[in-house]
Design a binder for these strands. Structure first.
Lengths: 134, 134
DNA sequence: ATGCCCTCTCCAGCGGCTGGAGGGTCAAGG
DNA sequence: CCTTGACCCTCCAGCCGCTGGAGAGGGCAT
């Protein structure tokens, strides 16, 4: 299988597949013409990688997950630990973003948003964080 | 004011301040010795930038916000539009992350996480997204 | 041989810093 | 006057995970 077909089959861009080879996530064979020759196993791995990435796992996590995936003697506890760590990072990011959202919504609500120059959003950015106007 | 004091006053790392000058967000004066000589206005701008960044605004948004901040004749509607756009991006990201979280939690819940190799997390990553085991 | 699409490698850039090398400046102390 | 040490300077490289583009070669139909 050439890279174009694999791209279509896995849903990953060609560039990404080459990149994954570059960082040693996959090691496709090579034909005499120099073209990458992907096996079914390569396609499975790439699909796996695509799903893991779409769940937000880092490349390093993906590397770990892939090696667990390939290790028939793995302990599921190891997989779970990686997943839990990632889940915690996601939860943290969500909290961060929700704090931003709350702060932004608070400012936006106060801004009349017309042609006049006075603007609580800019004032909020210019003042110390918690300082309510009073 | 030298960069160290400004860093302490604004809460921004020295490197970041230099970087902000590099990309023309601020234009501090220079002393005869080549040191940056910051005015109070520079410090205000940097503090403003720090707050905007902490709310997740991109550098380009910050550039816009800063120019609005400095423009006494601005329309608050313009500020509000920038903020609303950013809020929408944040909300989008939160949704994305929450979808990831739900998917991950679903997988993690199903994994017993012991020494045995069978693992619904890996299976979930190996199969098409919505395909429940049956 | 032509044309077209596929593939290859290598280099550069995105955002937003951050670290480090290698050097100049300034104030205090001896 | 000299040294010490904290500060400041510039420039380059790297982080992550790709992505775009240049320039060249391969494969197949006509």
């Amino acid at each position: 299988m050439n890279i174009g077909e694999v791209s279509a089959a896995s849903g990953l861009p060609i560039k990404t597949i080459r990149y994954y080879e570059d960082i040693d996530l996959i090691r496709p064979a090579r034909g005499r013409n120099g073209y990458r020759a992907f096996s079914e196993a390569d396609v499975h791995k790439l699909t796996f990688l695509g799903r893991a990435r779409s769940l937000g796992f880092s490349i390093e996590d993906c590397r770990t997950l892939l090696s667990l995936y390939e290790d028939r003697g793995r302990a599921s506890a190891d997989v779970k630990e990686v997943a839990r760590g990632h889940l915690a990072r996601i939860a943290g990011k969500i909290e961060e973003l929700e704090a931003m959202r709350r702060a932004l919504e608070g400012l936006i609500d106060k801004c009349h948003g017309d042609g006049r120059p006075d603007c609580p959003i800019l004032e909020g950015l210019a003042r110390p964080a918690g300082a309510a106007g009073g």
